[in-house]
Structures are given as structure tokens and as C-alpha cells.
Amino acid sequence: MNFNVASPETNEELFEVIAANQGRNFRFGAGCTDLLIELKKQPEKDLTVINLGYLNDPQFNSIENNDGSVRIGALVTANRITSDLTIQERLPVLYEAANQLASGQIRQVATIGGNLCTASPAGDMACALVALKAECEILSANGKVRVVPIEDFFTGVRKTDLKENEILRSVQIPVNNSGEKVHSGFIKVGVRRSMECSVVSLAYHIQITADDIITLAGIAIGSVAPTIKFASSACEYLTGKRFSEIGSSESEEFATKILEYASPISDIRASAWYREEVLFNISKSIFE
């Protein structure tokens, strides 16, 4: 494993390094926890790692609580997400996904931007962000900014919508401050509890008014398709219903709708059949 490292500290330096590497082999490195494993297994020739470890820009590095949204810089680590009070209270699905990611040593350095840009169908924080209908803010080396819905950000297994001269700067998550209750969480099924790449994962975020009506539902599933899927028909099914009146037949119908979005493969971790069974059961379980 041998590569060059460029460590831009300012936006200007970042733009310069990106521009200088167009047409060459380069990778971004934030926490580098996925990147280094990949490069150890498959070293790349003439590679430059654009190391974001010293990039000093609050737009990349901070969590901002705005009215009606939370903006999380791409370089914010999983650990910082788990210690943010607004995220703990208003976005439990993201808190739980960040808290279940890998291990403490990895959460200390792994970033939310890295989790998204790796674009693994098993990405934990990525799955939560799909359920939350987050938007990705993308910066290009010529200074232009564009925003894409997270579902369009993932284009395939380990593929994103990012162009060669672009970098993910932040994600923006809508937050309902009207005081509605949230029923929100992340369920990850794997072979063990820690350091586990999920076999199936389910992220759910449901908002309920004081008089028990579901006003918003976001459901995303991971590890059961080439990309993380947003289960729109399952969300529509819930919207408008009374939360406390969802019984076993409703939750089965809900789980059946979710299953329509799954097209799992059999691999070394689990068979397709098993993934579907588990997905059905954990989907039902969120109302128990």
C-alpha cells in the first residue's frame, strides 16, 4: 500500500488539489476507515489520497441547528452525531444508526460523509438519512453548489452521483419542531452486535400529532437491494392513520409493502430468503 497524500487546509487549497488531480487517480479520505481497508486489499497505482483530516471549514466540520432543519457537515464523525442533543431528541433514527456503527474506535474517526460516499447498501447512517429524506449538498472545485435528494445521490452499489470534480459538503435534514411525537429508530440485524456489517437494516421515522394521527412516515431499508431503498408505498400507507390503532393486520400489510422494495441477494452473510424473512419480521416489530 503506497500512495501520495495531499492535505488541504482551506477551501482554496481543496479546490486546487481537486483541480490538479482531474484525470488522475485520486480518492478522498476523511476518517479513512473504509478507504484504508480497501487499499490494503487492493492497492492502487499512482494514487493520491486527498486527506480531509486538516480541512478547516465549519461548513464541512459542524452541526448546525437551524429553524426546521439540521445541517451536518460531511466531516462530522459518528461520535459527534451520537453526542448531539438535538439529534438524540428529534432524530433518534440517526442517533441509533450512528451509535450502532462498527465500534467505538471506528466511530471516533468515521464520518457521515464517508458513510454516504462509500455508498454501501449496508451503510448505517446512510440508511437513516434516506428515511429522514435528507438532502446532499455537493460542492464542485469551481465553487458551484448543488443539492440533490439523498435517494438520487446513490446510483448503485458503491456508486454515487458525484462527478470527478465534486465533493460532498454536508447533509441537510428536515426537523419538525411543532412538538409532534416521534417514533423513530434503527434496527440492524447481523451476526453479532458490534463491528457488524448488517444482513438487513431498517430505519424508521414516524411523526405523530398530539391526537394520535401519523403526519409523516419515512421508512428505509438497507442490505436488501443494490442501494438503500425508500419504501414510499409503506410510508403512504401509514400517513393519516391513528398510530395507536395499528394492530397486527395493519402492521403485516405495512411489512408486505416494505418487502416490495427488497431484491436481496444470497451471499456469504445470509441467503436472500433469510433476508426477506427478517425484513418482514423487523418491519412488523416497530409497532409492537
Binding site: 479513512c32 476507515t33 484504508l36 489520497v49 486527506n51 467505538g104 471516533q108
Partner: peptide, 11 residues
């Protein structure tokens, strides 16, 4: 605590 096997010395 971090894993030193997944951490670049330059950092």
C-alpha cells in the same frame, strides 16, 4: 481510543 491500523500517521 482509535484503531492505529486504520489511521494515517500524517494525521
Amino acid at each position: 481510543a482509535i484503531s492505529s491500523c486504520l489511521y494515517l500517521a500524517v494525521n
